[in-house]
């Protein structure tokens, strides 16, 4: 793993953690903590599944951080400034649809289209079969398309 791969992986992990935590600082803390834990376990390195291990660690850390998260901060962080882009109304609409999805469905769409993981890798991270994950992602996409069509027609 060189520096370029490391940097790309850092950014993707940050976006993933941000989608889960909706907080920049906490997301960065979770990403750095993920890399440190990855280094603590040398058996994870060089096995060809480093990305899967990193996302699994980040997911568990995000879950822990989300549990420790104060409830009063939730309303403030829901509003994401980066998602507010008037030049791309379709992108904003899609992001709004994504934010309206449940937590588990949003996580899968982020892992698939933001982090760029394959369905097999997502299935391995989530602990389900490839077939089940593929069906689940298709079902979520269908629901998003239907909602997107409705919003676009309005």
């Amino acid at each position: 793993m060189d520096k370029t791969e490391l940097k790309s992986l850092y950014e993707k992990l940050f976006q993933y953690c941000y989608s889960r935590l909706s907080d920049r600082d906490r997301a960065e803390d979770a990403v750095q903590e993920t890399f440190l834990r990855f280094l603590e376990h040398p058996e994870y390195q060089g096995s060809g599944k480093e990305q899967q291990y990193l996302y699994t660690i980040a997911r568990n850390l995000c879950i822990d951080a989300y549990r420790r998260r104060p409830h009063e901060e939730l309303a403030e962080d829901v509003i994401d400034e980066s998602a507010q882009d008037p030049s791309h109304p379709d992108r904003m609409l899609l992001r709004a649809i994504l934010d309206s999805l449940p937590e588990d469905e949003r996580e899968l769409i982020v892992l698939r289209y933001v982090s760029g993981l394959s369905v097999r890798e997502i299935a391995a991270i989530s602990g389900v079969s490839w077939f089940a994950m593929n069906r689940r992602i298709r079902r979520i996409l269908g629901k998003m398309r239907e909602q997107f069509g409705k919003e676009e027609s309005v």
Binding site: S19, R95, I109, V110, Y113
Partner: peptide, 15 residues
């Protein structure tokens, strides 16, 4: 929708 999904990462903030 597919194109927008590929550009979905741009809606997220960078570290």
């Amino acid at each position: 929708m597919d194109d927008l999904l590929q550009e979905l990462g741009k809606t997220f903030p960078t570290p």
